[in-house]
């Protein structure tokens, strides 16, 4: 050790430094993420006996059963399209806020940014209970609609509740991702478009929108992944009527004790994420 310390330091090439710096995170990732995922994949080929006991065998039963069962096919389809719809709604609601934040400056911007981030400081569970209190059948929203003499839809313990709750919970993430992606949006460029004869609408379509697409793609990827994997909100607000991949994984793992099936569904979620990531990078490649 001491002799080494006295020897003139050998110059490291940047490649070596990079490897050295990446090693700890690679190790943590391997132990904390890759190994469990591989274990999960292995589990999906195990057999479950009646009652929940696991037999350590190798069978395609779970995978084939999953693909043959209409309930699970619908579950996958529902999860994906509901998450997509929530992502889109979140985007539409968040975009103007992010744009406004991007353009504001000084203490006002700081204040607004804190306002946007503040929901993240509260647990999603608490916020979900807040939504339940607001949207429940004899809650303020439904009562207000009834007071106007309109037919009040049931807004809680169904897909509508999940939709509203998840959208609100995901909005801060979307806004932050959008703002992170708005870097290329120089106000001078918008002004250039305006002086060249573009109306505000055409400026938005031809300049602002294309320039913010990287942010949009990032925000959508993030929210889609979070929506697919969100479990607490659908569980609390879905009233047991909304069947999604994440809630089904919970039921299979915790209630029915069918770990192999839960593993299979989990790997399926990973595949969905992989597809989302692929779509994201495809969009980015096209943008460049």
């Amino acid at each position: 050790m001491t002799t080494e310390a006295l020897a003139p330091p050998r110059k490291m090439r940047s490649g070596e430094v990079a490897v050295l710096l990446l090693l700890p995170i690679a190790l943590i990732n391997a132990i904390g993420f890759i190994l469990p995922v591989l274990n999960l994949a292995r589990f999906s080929f195990n057999k479950v006996s009646i009652g929940g006991g696991i037999e350590n065998v190798f069978t395609w039963e779970n995978w084939l059963g999953l693909l043959a069962d209409r309930f699970y096919l619908e579950l996958i389809f529902n999860s994906v399209w509901i998450s997509l719809a929530i992502t889109l709604t979140t985007l539409i609601l968040s975009y103007p806020i992010a744009l406004y934040l991007h353009r504001s400056s000084g203490p006002w911007r700081t204040f607004l940014t804190v306002l946007v981030i503040s929901p993240l400081l509260t647990s999603a569970v608490v916020r979900t209970y807040g939504w339940i209190a607001i949207l429940i059948d004899d809650g303020p929203v439904v009562s207000a609609i009834r007071a106007l003499g309109l037919p009040a839809p049931s807004l809680m313990f169904n897909i509508k509740g999940v939709f509203i709750g998840l959208t609100e919970i995901l909005m801060p993430y979307m806004i932050l991702a959008l703002m992170a992606g708005f870097g290329r949006l120089d106000p001078r460029v918008e002004e250039a478009a305006r002086t060249l004869g573009a109306t505000p609408a055409r400026t938005f379509r031809k300049v602002i929108l294309p320039l913010t697409l990287p942010g949009i793609a990032l925000g959508c990827l993030l929210c889609f992944v979070l929506a697919v994997s969100s479990f607490i909100t659908p569980k609390l607000m879905g009233g047991g009527r909304v069947f999604l991949l994440a809630t089904e994984i919970y039921d299979q793992a915790i209630v029915t004790l069918n770990w192999p099936l839960a593993s299979t569904l989990s790997i399926l979620v990973l595949i969905v994420f992989g597809a989302a990531l692929w779509a994201y990078s495809a969009v980015l490649r096209r943008l460049d």
Partner: peptide, 20 residues
């Protein structure tokens, strides 16, 4: 008159070209 109806050609200090 709104900006887009003024018929001005403007060159900005930062050029403000459309990067995309």
């Amino acid at each position: 008159l709104p900006i887009h109806d003024r018929d001005m050609g403007m060159v900005f200090q930062s050029y403000a070209l459309f990067p995309h």
